[in-house]
Design a protein around this nucleic acid. Structure first.
Lengths: 221, 221
DNA sequence: TAGGTTGTTATTGGATCCAATTTATGCCAC
DNA sequence: GTGGCATAAATTGGATCCAATAACAACCTA
């Protein structure tokens, strides 16, 4: 997901494993992460686990309380709404920084991902492909600070996006596909203004749908 | 600076000390941070130092390379420009989220900070007060994700802001004061639209001034 | 029986020690 | 004299052990 090159072997490996578990839903928000359990399950001692937890805390994927341990944060609707508002501001910027450097090969790959989205409608698969689609549109953005922030925002809201998709099914697939198509077309025209606008609308509409379904935020435990 | 409550005693204490050293310029960009030196200087073993370095890495204040240690990142003009573009997008959002909850006491404090800025023109003092001014305008923003991002952006660019101020002196003080006054007046009118606009202009003008002075980014060593 | 208190257990935080990797230094060959 | 290579010193990464703090449970008292 994020830059694995900046971390050492064991810490990075454990962080990646935990990140995958959190993002694919194996570890749910609110769940506590005991250091010894993780060390035993993933191999290694508690020390790299502690460092891995700090890495994840940096990404907002876990919350560390002194002497109380780490847990996956439970977000309330207001927090998720703000995270989406941040996406609305930052991702159009990433897109505009990216667009100029997108090669035709990049555009072809984006198109291919969208083609696959329009075929398979599995919820799990959609979450992966939708993320790949948007990240592919940002490949030209070379600024790592900006991209780290964007990835953080996606990671922090991943669980609620999945909860929303599981709840509503793929009924909105047509709308999403239309928005993606418009975005792609603007990218091919190299029209940054339009691309930013379509992306903003896409994220904003999703935010409004999310806040209309507060049942997503029930703990469920 | 950021939330000290989420970290344990020693790690948090060391991280705070290092953060202060980096932000006030005692530790310059490019400088390497040897774990044992820090442990000896600030007390404690290398372990809490390692955790502190991870905390700072999360905030973008240091860069960790596996088996090579931590150093304060050296930013190029393009990176700083993007960080400022991110500020232009995020801080107006923080301001609009904050404004509704700003009490008249908050507004009085903001006014008091600005009054002090207009008196003392010391560079070091200005950097502190200017930061206090803007953070005071965000006190009503309760979303910690957004505020963490904003603080990160300020921290990452602090060194270059100081370099710029040291270079140009306080010649631009009148412009900054005018912008601050306009912003304050919009806040008092509870006009979110105007406040966002003035803030955007304030940050954007600063960005343009920064990129016009590439000599700020010379290593100097 | 309910509430508070105390003692026990479980979990995290910190220190020291050892291994692995990198970087610096000096030597040799060309 | 310069470039490459080997060796040695320095520095970081990881594991185990011990201490401190918090969660938990049982007990006692009102």
């Amino acid at each position: 997901m994020s830059d694995a090159s900046t971390e050492s072997a064991a810490s990075s490996r454990i962080a990646q494993a935990l990140r995958d578990d959190i993002l694919n839903g194996s570890i749910a928000p609110g769940q506590r992460l005991r250091q010894e359990d993780i060390a035993e399950r993933l191999g290694g001692s508690r020390l790299p686990v502690r460092e891995a937890l700090r890495i994840l805390a940096a990404e907002g994927l876990v919350q560390i309380e002194p002497n109380k341990g780490a847990r996956v944060p439970l977000l309330d609707p207001g927090e998720v709404e703000t995270l989406y508002r941040m996406r609305e501001r930052l991702e159009p910027l990433a897109l505009s920084e990216s667009m100029a450097k997108l090669s035709s090969a990049d555009l072809a790959e984006i198109s291919e991902i969208q083609r696959r989205i329009e075929q398979g409608v599995d919820v799990t698969e959609f979450l992966i492909l939708d993320r790949e689609f948007h990240m592919a549109t940002y490949t030209g953005c070379s600024d790592e600070h900006l991209m780290l922030s964007v990835v953080r925002l996606w990671n922090s809201t991943q669980h609620y996006r999945r909860a929303f998709m599981s709840l509503t099914g793929s009924g909105r697939a047509q709308i999403v596909n239309a928005e993606h198509r418009l975005l792609m077309e603007a990218l091919e025209r190299r029209d940054a203004e339009d691309a930013e606008l379509y992306l903003l609308g896409h994220i904003r509409r999703t935010r409004k749908e999310l806040v209309r379904h507060p049942e997503i935020f029930s703990t469920g435990s």
